[in-house]
């Protein structure tokens, strides 16, 4: 039989986090609390001789369904708070009374009945469950396959957004850039043709003058660049060696 400690542990980690559904303001906290509820239910399935269902509960609910909820919360905005304005007066108290009444009704009905508990348990191991699923229930499994495909296609159709503007081709983007006055060719890479092949050294043009544009604007704003003047003098000397006239430089 099931140990009372396990039952009360499961009851504790399912009922207390489940109350977050009613009292917690932030949807993300609610989602994490529901994850804990699902783990508690998985533990109870294993205790009730259904180890396969326990594993499926962890994989499907905590692993897939609740993460899908979290992704959706991320898409619609985590910080969206609920408005507490009541549109129907007294709706909150009526709803609470109905829910408590429902719980009391269910518990009283269950407590009035006597259940015979079988001593012999069929343990729901994967082989046993598979034998039933692909034996007696094989038609249901196939129908569920259709259902899952339909759901996936339905989700794609529902979240599909038609394009507002036709897609721009690469040629159109380039033409727009040129029309806006952009340089038709790439900027020179920093360090290119310079002595120091580094990001902070400007490239030198064929005349030996530094090209300011080749260094990142950020480095220039921080004054972290080498201005290239030291190369210039050196270059002059080199050119003199090669026999160029002084006034060329």
């Amino acid at each position: 039989m099931i140990s009372p400690v396990l039952f009360w542990f499961v009851a504790f980690i399912t009922v207390i986090p489940a109350l977050a559904l009613i009292f917690s303001r932030r949807p993300v906290h609610v989602a994490m609390a529901v994850v804990l509820v699902m783990v508690g239910l998985a533990i109870s399935y294993v205790a009730l001789d259904a180890p396969f269902l326990g594993a499926v509960q962890i994989i499907v609910y905590t692993g897939a369904v609740m993460m899908l909820f979290l992704f959706t919360l991320m898409l619609v905005g985590v910080d969206k708070r609920e408005s507490l304005k009541e549109t129907i007066t007294g709706q909150r108290w009526i709803a609470l009374a109905l829910a408590i009444g429902l719980g009391a009704l269910l518990i009283s009905v269950v407590s009035r009945l006597t259940f015979s508990v079988s001593e012999r348990a069929t343990v729901g191991e994967p082989t046993e469950v598979a034998g039933w699923l692909f034996g007696d229930y094989v038609l249901v499994v196939e129908v569920l396959g259709f259902l899952l495909i339909t759901a996936a296609v339905g989700a794609l159709v529902l979240t599909h957004v038609p394009r507002l503007f036709p897609k721009r081709t690469q040629a159109e983007i380039q033409a727009a850039r040129i029309a806006a006055g952009a340089d038709p060719v790439n900027k020179a890479f920093p360090g290119f043709y310079a002595r120091h092949n580094a990001l902070d050294a400007p490239a030198l043009d064929p005349e030996g003058n530094p090209i300011e544009d080749s260094v990142s604007r950020v480095l220039r704003a921080r004054n972290q660049t080498i201005d290239g003047s030291e190369f210039k003098d050196d270059n002059k000397a080199r050119r003199r060696e090669l026999g160029a006239k002084e006034d060329d430089a």
């Binding site: 009613i22 709803a95 609470l96 518990i107």
Partner: peptide
């Protein structure tokens, strides 16, 4: 039963 009631309350209240 308790969990079902809590779930129902959440659907009605939130």
């Amino acid at each position: 039963s308790v969990l079902f009631a809590i779930g129902a309350a959440a659907v009605l209240l939130r």
